[in-house]
Computed example of a mutant assay.
Amino acid sequence: MLYEGTLSKMETEFGYPIQYYLVFESSFLNVNQLLGKEVEISFRGYQCLNCSKKKKIYRQGFCYDCFYSSPAVGDWIMRPELSTAHLGIADRDLDYETRVQLTPHVVYLALSSDVKVGVTRKTQVPTRWIDQGACQAVSVVEVPNRYLAGITEVALKDHFVDKTNWRKMLQNEVLDLDLLTEKTRIFEFLPEEVQPYFNAELDEHLILNYPVIEHPKKVTGLNLDKTPNFKGKLIGIKGQYLIFHDGTVFNVRSFEGYVVAINV
């Protein structure tokens, strides 16, 4: 069966295991059902997720012009400590930034390879943890805006990593520890203005189970610009990656805005 459309990150549904969906303009695909089957991915072109024009994708599914104009990809997205909506100061669009930045945010610890600190809007729990391929995650502090979450993350970066080692995550090389224990030692590291929001009883702790038949020993990333056609047997889905029997892995999120045909 053939599915065609513009890639965006896989939608997920929490469960045991987590369910994954590729959603296109006029169809959707439950990717879990493809485990153990041959899947062919063919690159067809580009379509910007913002303006919908068939322009080459620059970053994060956006063409060059949209990447440097849309408020959805301002610097404060990747660096929340740069948020300014709480001061009434716009980066690109204050209305948009107010809606996104001035909502409850969670600072968390996630275990996908090493212990990682991160920030997400409360409404994105547990989606954010799933997208990172975390096998467990725990909320550390909940604050009323993105700026406070950002300065908390910056403070905790001195004690925890802030990036996922995607190779170790896919190979399931994960530290053996309890995140709830890790959480008990971080209060003294929090910025003074964030300490009142710390709640030691906040028990938003999840164990995450992914649909993986077999973890690869070595991994090689599939790049559609260099390999526009690929075929292989799907053996797992973790984070936003499709894992194939030969060790090829495809990061769906890295190729948002790419128009593909998927034959199964």
Rank of each mutant, 00 (worst) to 15 (best):
M1F: 00
M1Y: 10
G5E: 11
T6P: 00
K9H: 09
M10F: 07
T12H: 00
T12N: 03
E13F: 02
G15N: 13
P17L: 02
Y20A: 00
Y21W: 07
Y21R: 10
V23K: 10
L29R: 05
Q33D: 15
L35S: 11
G36F: 10
G36D: 11
E38M: 08
V39A: 09
V39F: 04
V39W: 03
V39H: 09
I41G: 09
S42N: 10
F43E: 04
R44S: 09
G45V: 02
G45N: 07
Y46A: 10
Q47R: 15
C51G: 04
C51L: 07
C51E: 12
S52Q: 14
S52I: 10
K54I: 04
K54S: 12
I57M: 09
Y58G: 09
G61H: 12
C63L: 12
Y64W: 03
D65L: 12
Y68D: 04
S70I: 04
D75L: 08
D75F: 00
R79V: 06
R92A: 07
D95F: 09
D95K: 15
T98D: 01
R99M: 06
R99H: 05
R99I: 03
T103L: 05
T103F: 04
H105F: 00
V106L: 13
V107T: 12
Y108Q: 07
L109M: 01
A110C: 07
S113Q: 11
S113H: 11
D114M: 00
V117N: 03
V117L: 01
V117F: 07
V119D: 08
T123P: 03
T123M: 08
P126E: 01
P126L: 01
W129G: 05
W129S: 01
I130D: 02
C135T: 13
V138Q: 01
V138R: 03
V141D: 14
E142F: 01
N145E: 11
R146P: 04
R146V: 03
A149R: 05
A149G: 00
I151A: 02
E153Q: 06
V154K: 15
K157M: 11
D158I: 00
D158Y: 14
H159N: 14
V161R: 05
D162S: 02
K163R: 13
L170I: 11
V174F: 02
L175D: 13
D176Q: 10
L177D: 07
D178C: 11
L180N: 12
R185F: 04
E188Q: 15
F189R: 10
E192R: 05
E192P: 07
V194R: 08
Q195R: 15
Q195S: 10
P196D: 02
F198S: 04
N199I: 01
N199V: 06
E201Q: 15
E204H: 11
H215D: 12
K218W: 08
K218N: 13
K218P: 01
G221H: 15
G221I: 03
L222C: 05
N223Y: 08
N223M: 09
L224A: 08
L224E: 09
T227V: 13
P228T: 02
N229D: 14
K231P: 05
L234W: 04
I235C: 01
G236I: 01
K238R: 15
K238Y: 00
G239E: 09
I243G: 03
H245N: 13
D246Q: 05
D246C: 06
G247I: 06
V249E: 03
V249W: 09
G257H: 10
Y258S: 07
V259C: 06
V259L: 02
V260E: 12
I262T: 12
